[in-house]
């Protein structure tokens, strides 16, 4: 049992215990500076009526959908390109490079590049005749912008995961398709994608859990604005807990986020287990 002892210690102290404690605090009024006071379901009642909470949930979902959608499509595209064109380590290394830079740094660099007046991206847009876009200032652009930045950072990493999945597809499948005279496009839709599904679902589960927890990019750039357009749930929880001394309420929101994540992940895992592979 000595093998599992350290991990169990860490698990109990830093996962189980805080989860239980967090669950308890969610039923209290706790300002951090005074002892927690039990207040029953008051935090949850507040949450139901808190338009900021619902807005934050909505914004987060919008972010997740854009982020995961674009990232997955791009990652599959990149993986296909690499798979069909080149096995070059250099190309793979460049594709992965953004992942090595911390979230905060990535956010800062893009913040500078996307500025409406002095940002280089708007200069490029100007060259092709497009008016400057207020990426962070326009409430319609803010979330897609934040999502896009994170796609930039993660697409290479995800592409390599998909790439690994592609390599597991035996070549005889493709050979058979070629004999049948299938076009590359048809082969992709009818053979590659279905066979890739187990890997894709796994990638989706992992990236989705991460995506719901978007925080760094928002904290560094828009800080929730404009007009709450980027006040994602994680940022809102942070704000409530640490700038407004509302720890109990923040815990309640965190618990709800946990529940949502658990449901989403379980659904995805069920999807994964339903059909391990279409190849079998």
């Amino acid at each position: 049992m000595i093998f599992i002892a350290p991990a169990t210690l860490g698990f109990v102290v830093f996962y189980i215990w805080p989860t239980l404690r967090g669950a308890y605090l969610s039923f209290t009024e706790y300002s951090l500076l005074e002892a927690p006071k039990f207040n029953g379901l008051a935090n949850y009642e507040r949450m139901v009526q808190d338009s900021f909470f619902w807005n934050a949930l909505g914004v987060t979902v919008e972010y997740v959908v854009i982020n995961i959608g674009v990232q997955t499509v791009l990652a599959v595209g990149i993986a296909m390109l690499m798979y069909r064109l080149t096995k070059s380590i250099t190309v793979r290394a460049i594709v992965l490079a953004p992942y090595l830079v911390a979230n905060v740094v990535v956010a800062l660099v893009w913040y500078w590049m996307l500025d409406v007046q002095v940002g280089v991206v708007n200069t490029f847009l100007g060259w092709v005749g497009i008016d400057p876009v207020a990426f962070f200032g326009d409430s319609h652009w803010a979330i897609p912008t934040v999502a896009g930045i994170n796609v930039w950072r993660h697409m290479g990493y995800t592409a390599l995961l998909v790439f690994a999945g592609l390599q597991t597809i035996p070549s005889y499948v493709y050979e058979a398709a070629e004999v049948d005279g299938s076009t590359e496009w048809k082969t992709f839709w009818r053979i590659t994608l279905p066979l890739l599904r187990p890997v894709l679902v796994m990638v989706l589960v992992v990236t989705m859990i991460g995506s719901f927890q978007i925080f760094d990019t928002v904290a560094v750039t828009t800080q929730g604005g404009p007009i709450n357009a980027t006040r994602v749930i994680y940022y809102y929880i942070y704000e409530r807990a640490f700038t407004r001394f509302d720890f109990g309420y923040a815990s309640a929101m965190a618990l709800v986020l946990f529940a949502i994540l658990a449901v989403v992940s379980l659904l995805q895992l069920r999807l994964l287990r339903a059909k391990e592979s279409d190849l079998a």
Partner: peptide
């Protein structure tokens, strides 16, 4: 199951 616990949830009590 702990894989699904959002870090912020453990972050606050931790």
């Amino acid at each position: 199951a702990a894989l699904m616990v959002p870090p912020i949830f453990t972050t606050l009590p931790n």
